[in-house]
Design a protein around this nucleic acid. Sequence first.
DNA 1: CCTATCTAGTTTAACCTTCAAGAAGTGGGC
DNA 2: GCCCACTTCTTGAAGGTTAAACTAGATAGG
Lengths: 163, 163
Amino acid sequence: MTTAPRWLSEQEQRTWRAYLQATTLLEDHLDRQLQRDAGMPHVYYGLLVQLSQAPERRLRMTELARIAKITRSRLSHAVARLERNGWVRREDCPSDRRGQNAVLTDEGYAVLRQTAPGHVATVRQAMFDRLTPEQVGQLGEIMRIMAEGLQPQDTDADLPWLR
Amino acid sequence: MTTAPRWLSEQEQRTWRAYLQATTLLEDHLDRQLQRDAGMPHVYYGLLVQLSQAPERRLRMTELARIAKITRSRLSHAVARLERNGWVRREDCPSDRRGQNAVLTDEGYAVLRQTAPGHVATVRQAMFDRLTPEQVGQLGEIMRIMAEGLQPQDTDADLPWLR
DNA sequence: CCTATCTAGTTTAACCTTCAAGAAGTGGGC
DNA sequence: GCCCACTTCTTGAAGGTTAAACTAGATAGG
């Protein structure tokens, strides 16, 4: 048995459309800016950022994938490309012979330093310069709620009779 | 001469991270849901939605691209695929022989009707069921501001000395 | 130990997106 | 009418993403 679908209200529809347009336009805008100025798409840039903030500028592949919210497969491809660029290096993990560490190279760090100001400026111009501090707070809270609800759950969470 | 970059404040950083995570997770979630239930990615589904709401269920290619915030090139490829699926048909535009109309077929409309309820449920569960009506309003306003600032501008807007 | 099962990461092929280039048609100025 | 610049849309190639299959190593249970 299926229940009648609860369609979106007028307000919800307007919000949904605005959300889709804004997120599409922004991701596109960032991809273009970074492709032009750093020679890589936004997701790849984000990987370098994560590595730069990790202890010893290195992370296990799976951990990096988890933080960046991408699949391990996608990460494998991405790191392969970044490695060809000389911006990331792979290292065997000493404690687990299956494991790999992705390590940000000095060259990769240099690219990040050079391109970060331009990227921040782009983000500012697209988002923070247009919103009041209050709106920034609201947006943060809303996005945290959404992200929390979308985290890949423990499989058992879908199987309450097992708990 | 370059000015010192204005880095993001603590609050801005937290908001930005949350934004990136939420939007990445949601787009991924929608792509997976629609790929599974409708056999197409989210962007393609959005094209069918736009066509279904247009007069006579048809739109000029450029207009559809503009509404959906994608490039004409991407749209060409997308429509080619949807045409192979039998969900969209191309028609010559009577008034401009360069033009093409993308037309939603009955079959495409049927796919939409069958899959819309599941899609709305997914959107609800990810966003609207988790936010207060007040937050929905705030999000809408914020996204409208951002989208507005990201619209591809008239070229002249970048050349004030020409105005 | 030994085996079954799980986890880490990669690979392949199919599909999607982007960029640059190009074919075809429009329209204003002379 | 003719040219030239512009618009519409498509194409092809290069690169990015996905899903599923696969390798290799870890781990728990007997």
